[in-house]
């Protein structure tokens, strides 16, 4: 039936429960390296919503607008991650949950997805979980699939389009290196989305007013059904053994002269390096 006229049979009134998982990250556009000390200069570095999660929020809100339902944003982080959740509300999310506890500190992707999955279970009803394809500070792309696995639900990563949603199924396009795949799945499902999927909206004045008054649910260890051995640093199989600044590249060679002379020199270099 693909490609036929009925292929975009959007069902309104499904009332989906959509969960969007987000992360607060340092704005890397602001992160600079001090050339003398070779250390991070993070003066004035703002915390923002992971850029890829902005597409996840937008897709959740668009889906809700189309088929009805509710969007809940979920994050794990320190108390100040509330700001990210409030921003998500200003962009159209309905409710927000923050998982915050010192016991969560030091979580790697295993423990993070374990904790977020416990948060999702706490919300009980859900049809679709949306995550950004990866976080800009870690770039691991592991937490989305991790949550799905902990919850024992299917996943589709790198989704670039939601083609259709029906009562209990969904059809999406998954981006690959060569093109894309069309995948159908039962619900509940977890998807991670790429930036091709939409253009995130700007916040709205009413959304900002709503977010200002929004009450964020904060859950800690005792609120979740979790085992301490799976949390935080303890629950994380990976350990950071060493952190170092990458060796600076050797000073480059400056090529000077007239445009003609430069072109001649470059042509020789290219011939050699090619």
């Amino acid at each position: 039936m693909r490609g036929s006229a009925c292929s975009s049979a959007w069902f309104s009134g499904i009332d989906m429960n959509i969960i969007v998982c987000i992360k607060q990250v340092p704005e890397t556009t602001e992160v600079r390296i001090n050339p003398e000390t070779n250390t991070l200069m993070r003066e004035g570095v703002k915390s923002i919503i992971n850029p890829f999660d902005m597409y996840a929020i937008e897709e959740g809100v668009r889906l809700k607008e189309k088929v009805g339902g509710k969007v809940t944003v979920l994050t794990m982080g320190p108390p100040q991650a509330e700001a990210a959740l409030k921003e998500a509300i200003s962009l159209g999310a309905d409710e927000a949950v923050l998982l915050s506890d010192r016991a969560f500190a030091g979580s790697d992707t295993w423990a993070t997805s374990y904790t977020l999955a416990a948060g999702v279970r706490k919300l009980k009803e859900y049809d679709l979980i949306i995550c950004g394809k990866q976080a800009s500070d870690g770039d691991t792309a592991q937490v989305g699939p991790g949550i799905a696995t902990h919850l024992d639900i299917p996943q589709v990563t790198y989704v670039k389009k939601i083609e259709e949603v029906k009562d209990k199924t969904i059809r999406v396009e998954r981006m690959t290196e060569e093109g894309y795949e069309v995948i159908e799945s039962s619900l509940p499902l977890l998807i991670t989305v790429v930036k091709e999927i939409n253009t995130p909206r700007m916040p709205s004045l009413r959304g900002l007013m709503r977010s200002k008054q929004a009450k964020i649910t904060v859950l800690g260890v005792k609120d979740l059904d979790v085992e301490a051995t799976h949390l935080g640093l303890c629950g994380s199989p990976t350990q950071v053994a060493k952190i170092f600044t990458p060796p600076a590249r050797p000073e480059g060679e400056k090529i000077e002269g007239t445009a003609e002379e430069i072109a001649v020199k470059l042509a020789e270099i290219l011939k050699r390096e090619k």
Partner: peptide
């Protein structure tokens, strides 16, 4: 459209 969706015409 962006200005409209952000409720600025509502001001």
């Amino acid at each position: 459209k962006i200005i409209a969706d952000s409720d600025l015409f509502a001001i």
